[in-house]
Simulated scan of single mutants.
Amino acid sequence: MRFTEILRKENDDLFQLIFNHPFVDGIGKGDVPKEALTHYIKADYEYLNAFMHVYGLAIAKSSAREDIAYFNDQIGFVLNSEIHPHNNFCEQIGVSYEELQGYPLPPTADHYVKHMLYHAHTGNLGEILGALLPCPWTYLEIGKELVEKYRPDTAHPFNEWIQFYADQEVEQVTDKLRARLDEVAAEASDKERTRMKDAFRKSCQLELAFWEMAYTCEQWPAHEAVIK
Protein backbone atom coordinates (compact mmCIF):
# COMPACT_ATOMS: atom_id res chain seq x y z
CA MET A 1 0.00 0.00 0.00
CA ARG A 2 1.29 3.44 -0.94
CA PHE A 3 2.20 5.78 1.90
CA THR A 4 -0.52 8.26 0.92
CA GLU A 5 -3.07 5.44 0.78
CA ILE A 6 -2.15 4.67 4.38
CA LEU A 7 -2.55 8.35 5.25
CA ARG A 8 -6.00 8.46 3.66
CA LYS A 9 -7.13 5.34 5.50
CA GLU A 10 -5.79 6.51 8.86
CA ASN A 11 -7.49 9.88 8.50
CA ASP A 12 -10.83 8.82 7.05
CA ASP A 13 -12.52 9.88 10.28
CA LEU A 14 -11.50 13.48 9.64
CA PHE A 15 -12.45 13.37 5.97
CA GLN A 16 -15.93 12.17 6.90
CA LEU A 17 -16.31 14.88 9.54
CA ILE A 18 -15.34 17.46 6.93
CA PHE A 19 -17.87 16.12 4.40
CA ASN A 20 -20.62 16.30 7.02
CA HIS A 21 -19.73 19.72 8.42
CA PRO A 22 -22.68 22.15 8.13
CA PHE A 23 -20.64 24.69 6.14
CA VAL A 24 -19.50 22.08 3.61
CA ASP A 25 -22.92 20.45 3.39
CA GLY A 26 -24.44 23.92 3.15
CA ILE A 27 -22.39 24.56 0.02
CA GLY A 28 -23.99 21.46 -1.48
CA LYS A 29 -27.46 22.58 -0.42
CA GLY A 30 -26.80 26.10 -1.67
CA ASP A 31 -27.45 27.57 1.75
CA VAL A 32 -24.57 29.04 3.77
CA PRO A 33 -25.00 32.13 6.01
CA LYS A 34 -23.61 35.29 4.42
CA GLU A 35 -21.55 36.02 7.52
CA ALA A 36 -19.88 32.60 7.33
CA LEU A 37 -19.01 33.05 3.65
CA THR A 38 -17.54 36.46 4.40
CA HIS A 39 -15.49 35.13 7.31
CA TYR A 40 -14.27 32.23 5.19
CA ILE A 41 -13.07 34.42 2.32
CA LYS A 42 -11.26 36.85 4.63
CA ALA A 43 -9.38 34.02 6.30
CA ASP A 44 -8.79 31.89 3.20
CA TYR A 45 -7.30 34.79 1.24
CA GLU A 46 -4.59 35.24 3.88
CA TYR A 47 -4.22 31.47 4.36
CA LEU A 48 -3.51 31.01 0.66
CA ASN A 49 -0.93 33.80 0.80
CA ALA A 50 0.83 31.78 3.50
CA PHE A 51 0.40 28.60 1.45
CA MET A 52 2.42 30.22 -1.34
CA HIS A 53 5.15 31.12 1.15
CA VAL A 54 5.30 27.46 2.20
CA TYR A 55 5.69 26.48 -1.45
CA GLY A 56 8.55 28.99 -1.59
CA LEU A 57 10.22 27.37 1.40
CA ALA A 58 9.74 23.99 -0.26
CA ILE A 59 11.61 25.34 -3.29
CA ALA A 60 14.44 26.41 -0.98
CA LYS A 61 14.69 22.84 0.36
CA SER A 62 14.46 21.17 -3.06
CA SER A 63 17.52 19.89 -4.85
CA ALA A 64 15.73 18.47 -7.91
CA ARG A 65 14.73 20.86 -10.66
CA GLU A 66 11.52 18.90 -11.13
CA ASP A 67 10.49 19.75 -7.54
CA ILE A 68 11.43 23.41 -7.99
CA ALA A 69 9.38 23.60 -11.19
CA TYR A 70 6.42 21.87 -9.56
CA PHE A 71 6.26 24.13 -6.50
CA ASN A 72 6.71 27.18 -8.72
CA ASP A 73 3.76 26.04 -10.84
CA GLN A 74 1.64 25.62 -7.71
CA ILE A 75 2.31 29.20 -6.67
CA GLY A 76 0.94 30.21 -10.06
CA PHE A 77 -2.11 27.99 -9.54
CA VAL A 78 -2.96 29.68 -6.24
CA LEU A 79 -2.40 33.14 -7.69
CA ASN A 80 -4.32 32.67 -10.92
CA SER A 81 -6.84 29.87 -10.42
CA GLU A 82 -8.00 29.77 -6.80
CA ILE A 83 -9.44 33.25 -7.11
CA HIS A 84 -12.36 31.74 -9.06
CA PRO A 85 -14.05 29.86 -6.19
CA HIS A 86 -13.53 32.90 -3.97
CA ASN A 87 -15.25 35.07 -6.55
CA ASN A 88 -18.18 32.63 -6.65
CA PHE A 89 -18.71 33.15 -2.92
CA CYS A 90 -18.31 36.92 -3.30
CA GLU A 91 -20.97 37.02 -6.01
CA GLN A 92 -23.43 35.28 -3.69
CA ILE A 93 -22.89 37.72 -0.84
CA GLY A 94 -22.72 40.81 -3.06
CA VAL A 95 -19.29 41.97 -1.90
CA SER A 96 -16.24 42.51 -4.09
CA TYR A 97 -13.26 40.24 -3.53
CA GLU A 98 -10.99 43.22 -2.91
CA GLU A 99 -13.12 44.36 0.05
CA LEU A 100 -12.42 41.08 1.88
CA GLN A 101 -8.64 41.13 1.58
CA GLY A 102 -6.08 42.18 4.17
CA TYR A 103 -7.86 41.11 7.36
CA PRO A 104 -6.05 39.51 10.34
CA LEU A 105 -6.34 35.76 10.64
CA PRO A 106 -8.77 34.34 13.20
CA PRO A 107 -7.22 32.00 15.82
CA THR A 108 -7.71 28.71 13.96
CA ALA A 109 -6.42 30.02 10.62
CA ASP A 110 -3.50 31.67 12.41
CA HIS A 111 -2.63 28.34 14.04
CA TYR A 112 -2.94 26.48 10.73
CA VAL A 113 -0.56 28.89 9.01
CA LYS A 114 1.98 28.61 11.81
CA HIS A 115 1.68 24.82 11.78
CA MET A 116 2.62 24.74 8.09
CA LEU A 117 5.41 27.27 8.50
CA TYR A 118 6.81 25.28 11.43
CA HIS A 119 7.17 22.16 9.30
CA ALA A 120 8.46 24.19 6.37
CA HIS A 121 11.22 25.76 8.50
CA THR A 122 12.17 22.83 10.70
CA GLY A 123 11.24 19.73 8.70
CA ASN A 124 12.44 18.00 5.57
CA LEU A 125 10.67 17.92 2.22
CA GLY A 126 8.50 15.00 3.31
CA GLU A 127 7.15 16.92 6.29
CA ILE A 128 6.39 19.93 4.13
CA LEU A 129 4.51 17.75 1.65
CA GLY A 130 2.65 16.07 4.50
CA ALA A 131 1.54 19.43 5.88
CA LEU A 132 0.51 20.78 2.45
CA LEU A 133 -1.33 17.78 1.04
CA PRO A 134 -4.57 17.81 3.11
CA CYS A 135 -5.65 21.18 1.70
CA PRO A 136 -5.95 20.18 -1.98
CA TRP A 137 -6.87 16.59 -1.15
CA THR A 138 -9.80 17.39 1.15
CA TYR A 139 -11.09 20.05 -1.26
CA LEU A 140 -10.89 17.64 -4.18
CA GLU A 141 -12.91 15.06 -2.28
CA ILE A 142 -15.36 17.72 -1.06
CA GLY A 143 -15.98 18.75 -4.65
CA LYS A 144 -16.56 15.17 -5.79
CA GLU A 145 -18.73 14.41 -2.76
CA LEU A 146 -20.97 17.41 -3.40
CA VAL A 147 -21.27 16.64 -7.11
CA GLU A 148 -22.29 13.08 -6.29
CA LYS A 149 -24.67 14.02 -3.49
CA TYR A 150 -26.36 17.13 -4.87
CA ARG A 151 -25.84 17.03 -8.65
CA PRO A 152 -25.57 20.84 -8.92
CA ASP A 153 -26.45 22.53 -12.21
CA THR A 154 -25.71 26.00 -13.53
CA ALA A 155 -28.59 27.43 -11.47
CA HIS A 156 -26.98 26.27 -8.22
CA PRO A 157 -25.50 29.27 -6.37
CA PHE A 158 -22.24 27.47 -5.61
CA ASN A 159 -21.95 25.40 -8.77
CA GLU A 160 -18.75 27.17 -9.87
CA TRP A 161 -17.11 26.53 -6.49
CA ILE A 162 -18.11 22.86 -6.47
CA GLN A 163 -17.09 22.22 -10.06
CA PHE A 164 -13.74 23.97 -9.57
CA TYR A 165 -12.71 21.65 -6.75
CA ALA A 166 -14.13 18.54 -8.42
CA ASP A 167 -12.23 19.38 -11.60
CA GLN A 168 -9.29 17.54 -13.12
CA GLU A 169 -6.89 20.43 -12.41
CA VAL A 170 -7.27 20.08 -8.64
CA GLU A 171 -7.03 16.31 -9.01
CA GLN A 172 -3.73 16.73 -10.84
CA VAL A 173 -2.40 19.01 -8.09
CA THR A 174 -3.35 16.40 -5.50
CA ASP A 175 -2.00 13.46 -7.46
CA LYS A 176 1.38 15.12 -8.02
CA LEU A 177 1.71 15.99 -4.34
CA ARG A 178 0.75 12.43 -3.40
CA ALA A 179 3.19 10.90 -5.86
CA ARG A 180 6.09 13.02 -4.61
CA LEU A 181 5.27 12.29 -0.97
CA ASP A 182 5.12 8.57 -1.77
CA GLU A 183 8.59 8.80 -3.33
CA VAL A 184 10.04 10.67 -0.37
CA ALA A 185 8.39 8.31 2.14
CA ALA A 186 9.82 5.26 0.36
CA GLU A 187 13.33 6.46 1.18
CA ALA A 188 12.57 7.86 4.64
CA SER A 189 13.29 6.35 8.02
CA ASP A 190 10.51 5.21 10.33
CA LYS A 191 11.04 8.32 12.43
CA GLU A 192 10.76 10.57 9.38
CA ARG A 193 7.58 8.84 8.20
CA THR A 194 6.09 9.31 11.67
CA ARG A 195 6.74 13.04 11.43
CA MET A 196 5.15 13.12 7.97
CA LYS A 197 2.09 11.34 9.35
CA ASP A 198 1.88 13.79 12.23
CA ALA A 199 2.10 16.80 9.90
CA PHE A 200 -0.59 15.32 7.65
CA ARG A 201 -3.00 14.45 10.47
CA LYS A 202 -2.68 17.85 12.10
CA SER A 203 -3.37 19.55 8.78
CA CYS A 204 -6.48 17.39 8.39
CA GLN A 205 -7.56 18.39 11.90
CA LEU A 206 -7.01 22.02 11.01
CA GLU A 207 -8.92 21.72 7.72
CA LEU A 208 -11.94 20.60 9.74
CA ALA A 209 -11.34 23.34 12.30
CA PHE A 210 -11.07 25.93 9.51
CA TRP A 211 -14.61 25.13 8.33
CA GLU A 212 -15.86 25.40 11.91
CA MET A 213 -13.98 28.67 12.36
CA ALA A 214 -15.69 30.13 9.29
CA TYR A 215 -19.14 28.79 10.17
CA THR A 216 -19.06 30.20 13.71
CA CYS A 217 -17.30 33.43 12.62
CA GLU A 218 -14.56 32.73 15.18
CA GLN A 219 -12.75 35.78 16.56
CA TRP A 220 -9.96 36.40 19.01
CA PRO A 221 -11.39 36.87 22.57
CA ALA A 222 -10.47 40.56 22.59
CA HIS A 223 -10.58 41.19 18.83
CA GLU A 224 -12.08 44.65 19.24
CA ALA A 225 -9.49 45.81 21.74
CA VAL A 226 -6.91 48.33 20.63
CA ILE A 227 -3.33 47.38 21.49
CA LYS A 228 -1.39 50.48 22.56
Rank of each mutant, 00 (worst) to 15 (best):
I68S: 08
G123F: 04
H119S: 01
Q16R: 15
I68P: 06
S203G: 08
Y55A: 00
Q205W: 06
T194R: 14
D44S: 12
Q219I: 06
H121W: 14
L14V: 04
K61T: 09
G102A: 09
Y45H: 12
Y150W: 06
Q74T: 00
S63V: 00
R195F: 09
H39I: 05
A225L: 15
F51W: 08
G102P: 08
H156F: 01
T38Y: 07
G143A: 09
L117E: 05
F15S: 13
W220D: 04
V54N: 05
S62Q: 06
Y112M: 02
E5G: 05
H21F: 08
A60Q: 15
F158Y: 13
A64P: 11
A222I: 11
E5Y: 08
I68Y: 06
Y215L: 13
K176G: 14
L57P: 07
T154Y: 12
A179N: 05
T4Q: 01
L206D: 00
S81D: 13
P85F: 12
I93W: 10
E224Y: 12
F3D: 01
E148R: 14
G26W: 07
N80D: 03
Y45F: 11
D44I: 09
D12V: 08
I128D: 01
A155H: 12
F89D: 10
H111R: 12
K228Y: 10
P22F: 01
E127T: 08
G76N: 13
P104A: 10
W220H: 09
G130F: 07
L206P: 08
L132D: 02
E46A: 13
D198L: 15
W161E: 03
T4H: 06
A188V: 02
C204Q: 10
V78S: 02
H21G: 02
S62M: 06
D31E: 07
K191L: 11
D153Q: 07
E224G: 10
K114V: 00
Y97W: 14
V113Q: 00
L79G: 05
P85V: 10
N124R: 04
K42H: 05
H84C: 10
C204P: 07
H156S: 02
